[in-house]
Design a binder for these strands. Structure first.
Lengths: 205, 205
DNA sequence: GGCGAAACCCCCCGAATGGGGGGCGGCGAT
DNA sequence: ATCGCCGCCCCCCATTCGGGGGGTTTCGCC
């Protein structure tokens, strides 16, 4: 699989994003690459999994914000349907936690902000077996822990601390610990601001 | 004007969106239309205004969420620089208020969710002088009053009711009236949820 | 082994929130 | 001219928030 002389047979790419315009964009970009054999699109997770199972793509570009499901789940499901497929998460705002992406089985992430050259390079690199976790120059990592991201996700739902506690089997007091840590790390003072940040971080659907 | 041979002189189109992938997408879509002469892109407002001034495009597609500025301001500035240009606002989530868009001088809006055919049709229609304020099937208008939208915008900032009151020269009690009305109309229960809705409505930067 | 970071639990407090009630003037439509 | 909507103001109340202490265990790292 690690063909060194990188004349690749022709990569198959799958773009998973609920905005069709994103399909068009990546298709325009990738179809003109000699090493891309075909570039398909899917707008929802079910469709993406089916297509991945049939097509067995080399690379899948998956939007972090797919309707209800998190990009991480989508990533895992796609890799279950097509293990050969390496997943690049697409983040809208530029910043995702590498650890989360890795845990989900992704090979890296790219941002919609990146230039064409960076995106093309990233796709080729993961196809060749590398990981892409830094690229385009966007800052990442605010330093939120796994638990804190989880809590922030629920805060962005409008859930109260008590509801979050129930959902995560915690004491409300503990939830407050987490929210306080989140506010401190994000530099905000209340949940409304935190929600704004959360969507900037790509943590909210 | 729907005849097969409606050979227009060649429209010039400008796409204003801070995600390059959106440029690629629309360019792929529009460049292949016989009636499109050229399709340029701009990533920020200054650049958009300059390009509009030079190019005098027939149609500009403007993202509602451009960094700091609201799409409405962007729309107004572009039309100031190039009065002949008809603006189509691009909404990410599908719902914008027609009244706001009209007030800003836009000729309609489209959503990133729309299919290729609908987008092409919308661009051609505004180029021909029509307005496009309903298209793709998205619902609009939640029924928020002007004041409520203003308050919601500040809520999405993370401001407390007291701060909002100070900013708008109101009593804190009145602000609560507005927030309560907002929650009722949006079908949410607290500010965190309201912030999420607000960004879906394109009211938050 | 020691140390910190994360995650979990408890107490306290003041302030903000969200919902209930009431009433006021203005404005446009019926 | 009466109705409904908007915008504004006041009272009350229980709940929630956010921050301040305190503590435990379980990790991984040096």
């Amino acid at each position: 699989m690690a063909g060194a002389g990188d004349k690749q047979a022709g990569l198959r790419v799958l773009v998973v994003d609920d905005h069709e315009v994103v399909h068009w964009g990546f298709r325009l970009l990738l179809d003109r690459q000699s090493w891309v054999e075909r570039c398909d699109g899917a707008t929802e997770l079910d469709e993406a999994v089916r297509t991945a199972a049939n097509l067995q793509p080399d690379v899948a570009l998956v939007d972090l914000m797919l309707g209800a499901e998190s990009g991480a789940e989508a990533c895992a499901e796609i890799r279950a349907a097509s293990p050969r497929t390496r997943v690049l998460l697409i983040s809208g705002a530029g910043r995702v936690s590498p650890s989360v992406a890795r845990a989900a089985g992704a090979s890296g992430f790219i941002s919609k902000d990146w230039g064409a050259a960076d995106v093309v390079k990233a796709v080729r690199m993961v196809a060749l077996g590398s990981e892409v976790f830094s690229g385009g120059g966007a800052g990442d990592e605010v330093g939120l822990s796994e638990r804190e991201r989880e809590v922030l996700g629920l805060v962005a739902t409008g859930a109260t601390n008590k509801e979050i506690a129930a959902a995560l089997y915690l004491s409300p007091h503990t939830v407050k610990e987490h929210t306080s840590a989140i506010y401190r790390k994000l530099g905000v003072r209340n949940r409304a601001e935190a929600v704004k940040s959360a969507q900037g971080l790509g943590l909210v659907a």
